[in-house]
Design a protein around this nucleic acid. Structure first.
Length: 427
RNA sequence: GACCCCAUCGUCUAGCCUGGUUAGGACUCGAGCUUUUCAAGCUCGCAGCACGGGUUCAAAUCCCGUUGGGGUCGCCA
């Protein structure tokens, strides 16, 4: 039975790197029909916080990773103590004050067989004696980790490359305890956009931040799996279930990958563009409410229509909120440059005439609106584009957006006429 | 500093294991088509095997070294 685990420490939010580690564990478990275990490594009572535990669990759930078992190291101190005592009794560890320390055997080289990197050898002379239990009675990271991985029968330890140097120490603990070694796989790290460490300076790190920025979990998962792994066949946008079928630890790269917000946005845009409008509307509703754009008795149909118009124009849900603001509020943002360029004095008369024509329409739809509009510009002897752009700015505050007639139909007669009148008066 | 890991377009990658490819795809960028704008979509383009030695008829691919990048050296995890 394949059993993998994700073992975060609740001393901070779940970040992108952690999410990727969790993802590869999750994918491996799914591909092998194994179990995915979540172990909260909260042995540091000072720094561990319940809010982080909640946040990590929420983020994992949002990403779609479902754990089969959940453990908290803080509830297992007796177990660690018991094993430390055993090593003490066997003379494999010694006491240093209240602390329990493992003696490092110097007889032979320590060999790590990494599923991704192959064999790695360490000289025991470069490893210091390892504290197993601290003087305050709590276990150290490596000790708790080994005891738990062994007792929880973890078959594959899949974690970040930053743990490679910890592994020989942990192998020694396994051996001292007489436990069977799991298989190890060390994932390449994710670097920030400037090449350095992933940090807030180079972009958002917490998974929750991406959620609030309007990214879809499917897109994040899709992007993250592409960092250090490829499904082959030149596939980039790939269904999770298909990726799982192709997933293999041995095909994971050894090279650290730079995080690219551009590509994440592109993938998110692909998902947003491909999803059915009602589904995106579902995601947008809470955001629109939060913005105060809609109330409880909102017009669901209108939202879906707006989504349809903006779907190909958004890479995140926040793009939608910003670009479609004029649909939901009269206090929409106005592009100063566009205003200056298109809202010029001599358009006032056209705006008034257009408003009158629209007002007179019985059926206010894309087709009737376009007809009325084209009749007017023909009568006035001007090019359609001479009025299209000013009208768009008058109605939406922006020089760019969906087709004008679709936009007008979505806005509705009342708002369109009102905004045209307002714009005419302001000139 | 010591130990460890890594090295294909600016970025993510396929190819490397089992040497023989016009080194393929994607993001970004540029051009065009389409078009009332912006997107989307489609077409085209720019751009890469870090360097030096080997081995071999032949090296992105195998070996060694250099350089560069990264990680770890806590009674943090």
């Amino acid at each position: 039975m394949i059993r993998v685990r994700f073992a975060p420490s609740p001393t901070g939010y779940l970040h992108i790197g952690g999410a990727r580690t969790a993802l590869f564990n999750w994918m491996y478990a799914k591909s092998q029909e194994g179990k995915f275990i979540l172990r909260i490594e909260d042995t540091d009572m000072e720094r561990s916080k319940q809010e982080y535990v909640d946040e990590i669990i929420d983020s994992l759930a949002w990403l779609g990773f479902k754990y089969d078992e959940l453990y908290f190291q803080s509830k297992r101190f007796d177990i660690y103590k018991e094993h430390a005592l055993k090593l003490l009794n066997e003379g494999k560890a010694f006491k240093d004050g209240e602390a329990v320390v493992l003696k490092i055997p110097q007889e032979q080289q320590i060999k790590l067989y990494d599923l991704i990197r192959g064999e790695i050898t360490f000289d025991p002379a470069t490893i210091k004696d390892q504290v197993l239990m601290k003087s305050d009675g709590s276990p150290t990271y490596s000790f708790a980790c080994v005891v738990d991985d062994a007792l929880m029968e973890i078959s594959h330890v899949i974690r970040g490359e930053d743990h490679i140097s910890n592994t020989p120490k942990q192998i020694l603990i396994y051996q001292a305890l007489g436990f069977k070694l799991p298989k190890f796989a060390h994932l390449p790290l994710i670097m920030g956009e400037e090449g350095g460490r992933l940090s807030k300076r180079t972009g958002a790190v917490a998974v929750t931040e991406y959620r609030t920025m309007g990214f879809l979990p499917e897109a994040i998962v899709n992007y993250l799996m592409l960092l250090g792994w490829s499904p082959g066949g030149n596939q980039e946008v790939i269904k999770f279930s298909d990726a799982v079928k192709k997933f293999s630890i041995k095909k994971v790269n050894k090279t650290a990958a730079e995080f690219s917000m551009d590509k994440l946005r592109w993938i998110n845009g692909q998902y947003l563009n491909a999803a059915p409008a009602p589904q995106i509307a579902d995601l947008a509703v809470p955001l629109l409410k939060e913005k105060g754009y809609i109330q409880e008795n909102f017009d669901r149909n209108k939202i879906e229509n707006a989504v349809k118009l903006f779907q190909s124009r958004m890479e995140t849900l926040n793009d939608f909120l910003e670009r479609a603001d004029f649909v939901f509020t009269d206090q929409f943002n106005i592009d100063a440059e566009a205003k200056e360029k298109y809202l010029v004095k001599d358009k006032a008369k056209d705006f008034k005439l257009l408003g009158e024509r629209f007002f007179a329409l019985e059926d206010f739809n894309v087709k009737s609106v376009e007809e009325a509009f084209r009749h007017l510009v023909a009568e006035r002897g001007i090019a359609a584009s001479d009025l299209v752009h000013p009208v768009r700015v008058a109605l939406t505050g922006k020089a760019v957006g969906p087709g004008l007639f679709e936009t007008i139909a979505l806005l509705g007669k009342e708002k369109t006429v009102k905004r045209l009148a307002l714009a005419a008066d302001s000139l």
